[in-house]
Simulated scan of single mutants.
Amino acid sequence: MNKLDPSLLSSFVPTGSLRVGINLGNPLLASLDGDVPKGITVDIANHIASKLQLPITFTCYQMAGATVDAVKAGDVDLVFVAIDPVRGADISYTPAYIQIEGAYMVKESSPLTKNEDVDVSGNEIVVGKGSAYDLYLTREIKQAALLRSANSQAVVDNFMSGSGNVAAGVKQQLESDAQRYEGLRMLPGRFMVINQAIGTPKARVDFEKVTAYLSSVIQELKTSGFIAEAMLRHKVQGAKVAD
């Protein structure tokens, strides 16, 4: 499926310019080069705009929650966020294009040694507000408490300032942020797999057909090696192309 018929295209892109919301809260997928966004998500968005022969505009958000709010409000036409059933009430997802691990970090002196030690009464887990792992842990954690930072980038700094005794987030981001400090260690393995996908607003007419089109594009980009090549180009490590 290379093109959309005019009526479907006008529903998907009502302004005539593909408006893309970019989440800067996950540096594995997007970051800024000056004022210009770059990363895997930007590459995919540019590819879609090129296929549709449309101009493109990017709006960047500092956290996933703000990106989700923007697509729900109709301020953007598509976003790149983690698949989550709570968000799925308002957002239609393509299949995942990349998988990322969510992990825990503690201080060297912590008695916690494995993921199963975390959900215990008295533990406090610092998470980025509105992130995929915040939504996941809100559902799954039964005994420990969640302490929400303003965004994912603030998790380690808040943790090191005395908030909580466990930091949770994207494994690579925690490892990167932890380089600014000493005396930290990751718990082995992961507590979740984060499936990243394209999301579009369910409020739009024919959103199912739009999602089907975007799903075909994602499959093409995975099969052709585009996603894998973008990961190499942007030096993304610790993630994999989704099945």
Results as ranks from 00 to 15, higher is better:
N2V: 02
K235G: 06
K222A: 08
D33K: 12
S224F: 13
V217S: 01
L146T: 07
R204C: 08
I218S: 03
Y93A: 11
N195F: 10
S176K: 15
E220C: 07
I40M: 06
R190E: 14
Q99D: 15
L9P: 00
L137C: 04
T67Y: 05
K107F: 02
Y93F: 15
D5T: 01
F12H: 03
P111A: 10
V106W: 01
G21W: 00
N23V: 01
A178Y: 08
I218Y: 06
L32Q: 06
N26H: 05
R139E: 14
V236G: 09
G128Y: 02
M63D: 11
D157S: 14
P85R: 13
I83D: 06
S17M: 10
P188N: 12
L221S: 12
K235Q: 15
A73I: 03
D77C: 09
A45N: 00
M160S: 07
G16W: 03
A150V: 14
T113K: 11
G88H: 13
Q153T: 05
M186H: 07
T94Y: 03
F12V: 00
A96Y: 02
V193N: 14
D90G: 05
P55D: 04
A239I: 07
V205R: 14
D134S: 12
L18H: 00
N123S: 05
T57I: 13
I194L: 15
Q196M: 14
Q53M: 06
L24S: 03
G169T: 07
G164P: 10
N115M: 10
Q153I: 04
Y104C: 02
S121N: 04
L24G: 02
S11P: 01
Y213E: 06
K72P: 00
K171Y: 09
T211D: 02
Y136Q: 07
